[in-house]
Simulated scan of single mutants.
Amino acid sequence: MAPSNQERAAREARTRLRDYQARQQAHSERIRRRVRDNVIAGAAVVLVIAGVTAAQIFYFDGGPGSPVASPAATSTPAPSSTDAPAAEGQNTGDVPPATLAENRSWTGTLTIDDIPLGIELDGAAAPQAVSAFIAQTQDGFFTGTSCHRLTTSGLFVLQCGDPTGTGTGGPGYNYGPVENAPADNLYPAGTIAMARQGGNGYSMGSQFFIVYDDTTLPSEPGIGGYSVIGKVTSGLDALKTGVIAAGTADGSTDGKPAAPAVISGVTVQ
């Protein structure tokens, strides 16, 4: 017996309903996948932005030895590191013993872009920092590395000693506390000091900076300023007319030097 028109219509209606429900389910699944993909993509973008921001903060503000300029010397000299309360923290990694500095002056040559700089290190005033610098020099740690940061406004430093050339590298250990920071926060031209992270007196490693023009750097309560390990005794004018005069690669007042600024050797005795 052939189905009636009503039965055929009912079957067709059921078929259309099933097709409609299947299409709706497929559509809903596509929407869920799209929402999921958008969430994942959004999270990835956030992570990338956060990573870039953190890298910039670490390099320019919180990385080892990013000195922050002070517009002028304070009217009341800050206490020297020997007068300030001991900074909390501890050495990490295989830090060279402070006795390597032998409580004496060391002389030598630091060569940057074939410009020999006569240097003198004060092992009595900054025994831990000078000992680390001597150990790194004797290991040839600095040879072939590039100075990665030049500042030309407010503070006047050339920062070196990072084997990665990024401002985030070091020798695999960190030490402190700050030693031999100037009581008046003034770092005269020719000063050689150790770089460190802001707020962390135990973050020194291998990065150091050469002050090529008088610069005032703030001292942090309970931490101090920056460990002065010595001074440039000759060749500073040649460095200023060479590497410094070339400016930064991007023309900014704080960035990678336009000149290669490669350290070809360091000797001390």
Rank of each mutant, 00 (worst) to 15 (best):
R36F: 14
L236T: 11
E7Y: 12
G123L: 08
A125P: 07
W106K: 10
E12H: 14
V178L: 09
K256M: 12
Q197R: 14
G108L: 10
L117A: 04
S81Q: 07
A54C: 03
G165I: 04
S219M: 02
R196W: 09
I229D: 05
Q25D: 15
L17G: 05
A98H: 07
Q24D: 13
V95I: 10
A101N: 10
G108F: 09
E179Y: 03
T99D: 15
R18E: 09
F133H: 10
P79T: 13
I57T: 08
S66E: 08
G190E: 11
E102W: 12
S219F: 09
C147V: 11
L158Y: 08
H27L: 10
R18Y: 09
A126F: 05
E7K: 12
I115N: 07
Q197D: 09
G205K: 01
P85W: 14
D213K: 13
V52T: 13
V95Y: 00
F141Y: 14
A22N: 15
G265R: 11
Y202Q: 02
P77F: 11
G235S: 10
P188K: 06
T53P: 01
G93W: 07
T74A: 14
S206V: 06
V266W: 12
G144Q: 03
T76G: 07
T216W: 14
I31A: 15
A69G: 12
E179W: 03
A55K: 00
S252Q: 03
A238M: 04
G165V: 02
V262T: 15
P3W: 15
Q56A: 10
L100I: 13
L117N: 02
E29V: 15
V178F: 12
V35A: 09
G51P: 04
R196Q: 12
A43N: 09
G51A: 05
Y226K: 04
A238N: 08
T76W: 08
A245H: 04
G108V: 03
E12Q: 15
P182H: 06
G165A: 03
A9G: 11
N185G: 01
S227T: 15
G190F: 04
V68A: 13
N5P: 00
S4V: 05
T248V: 04
Q207H: 03
N91A: 13
